[in-house]
């Protein structure tokens, strides 16, 4: 699914009354699986479309997105080998990524 489609999905879900957050890759180091600008849209029930890491950290991003929706505030996440939690969430490709998560109000 292209970035274009993800943004349309985000709009469609929000218009349908669902609570939605948009996650965007804002910075990458090393061999990050998805380029800067890649999007993932998440609703408050954990449904998602798109990709920010090709599957490595989507689970963690979805959890954070649900919290951001509840809090109604954007947050910035970082995953990578420099971070011990990286192994827990599985960004094993050796890269590092920073993700901006923002609720769509």
């Amino acid at each position: 699914m292209t970035a274009h489609d993800v943004l349309e999905v985000a709009e469609g879900w929000r218009r349908a009354g669902r609570k939605v957050a948009l996650a965007t890759v804002i910075e990458t180091w090393g061999s990050a699986p998805r380029p800067v600008g890649s999007h993932l849209v998440v609703d408050d029930e954990g449904n998602f479309e798109g990709s920010v890491s090709g599957g490595c950290v989507e689970g963690a991003v979805v959890t954070e997105a649900i919290e951001a929706i509840a809090e109604k505030k954007p947050r910035i996440l970082e995953f990578g080998v420099a971070d011990e939690t990286a192994w827990r969430v599985g960004l094993s490709c050796g890269g590092r990524i920073r993700i901006h998560v923002e609720p769509v109000e």
């Binding site: 349309e8 985000a10 709009e11 948009l22 109000e105």
Partner: peptide
């Protein structure tokens, strides 16, 4: 981000 901005971007 407000929905209106996302709508305007998609337009």
């Amino acid at each position: 981000m407000r929905l209106a901005i996302l709508e305007a971007l998609n337009a």
